[in-house]
């Protein structure tokens, strides 16, 4: 069961990467990165059990935190006026 779940997570990671590369917009990419981060947390937890060393879960906790912080960071700085300014210059 663990192995089946790991494979499923890997497949979902492929899908998230595809969306992250395809875009087409900035928010799609942020969404893909966020989803990828959550799936990485699950993958690390599952890998710990598959390899018989569940102490790896510390890393999964760090991942969950870091993922949240980087999504907030991307949103914060994609709101910043310089990006909007470059949008306005175009129009």
């Amino acid at each position: 069961m663990l192995i089946a779940a790991t494979l499923a997570i890997l497949i979902v990671m492929v899908m998230a990467i595809t969306r992250g590369i395809m875009g087409p917009t900035l928010y799609d990419r942020i969404l893909a990165v966020n989803m990828f981060g959550t799936k990485t947390v699950l993958l690390i937890s599952l890998l710990g059990f598959v390899m018989g060393r569940p102490e790896f879960l510390d890393i999964a906790i760090v991942y969950a935190l870091i993922n949240f912080i980087s999504v907030i960071g991307v949103l914060r700085y994609s709101d910043s006026s310089i990006f909007k300014h470059s949008n306005q210059q175009k129009k």
């Binding site: 069961m1 663990l2 089946a4 779940a5 499923a8 997570i9 497949i11 979902v12 492929v14 899908m15 998230a16 595809t18 969306r19 969404l31 893909a32 989803m35 799936k39 699950l42």
Partner: peptide, 19 residues
Amino acid sequence: SVFLLTGSFLCISGGVGIL
């Protein structure tokens, strides 16, 4: 096993959704 499989199914459905 049931929990793991349900979770995997939900994951994959989310992945299909994002694509």
